[in-house]
């Protein structure tokens, strides 16, 4: 998937996550802010990486502001942000 512009999805409401994707020329960078970073940080980043891999995204900056989102929420938000960044509807 080719990323064309920066994009955002989600919210910072409880149990949600805000995902920002900024296309760039450098290697993948994932910044996570989360109240449960210590407990679930690794798991969240692994999940996001897996989705990016699936979509062939290798060069981007991903900013995550997590408010205790469950995995399927994270997955949905990341995919939405990716589609928006690639200007695709599905």
């Amino acid at each position: 998937m080719e990323l064309l512009n920066r994009a955002i999805s989600g919210t910072m409401e409880s149990s949600d996550i805000m995902v920002e994707i900024i296309p760039w020329d450098k290697d993948l960078e994932i910044n996570l802010k989360s109240d449960v970073k210590e407990q679930y940080g690794k798991q969240i980043i692994a999940l996001v990486k897996a989705i990016l891999d699936e979509n062939g995204v290798k060069k981007a900056c991903i900013n995550l502001k997590d408010k205790g989102a469950l995995d399927f929420v994270i997955s949905a938000r990341v995919k939405t942000a990716l589609y928006r960044a690639a200007r695709r509807s599905q």
């Binding site: 955002i8 919210t11 910072m12 409401e13 409880s14 805000m18």
Partner: peptide, 11 residues
């Protein structure tokens, strides 16, 4: 958490 909602919307 209304502030979270509002700031998210504004962003």
């Amino acid at each position: 958490g209304l502030m979270n909602t509002l700031i998210s919307e504004i962003i």
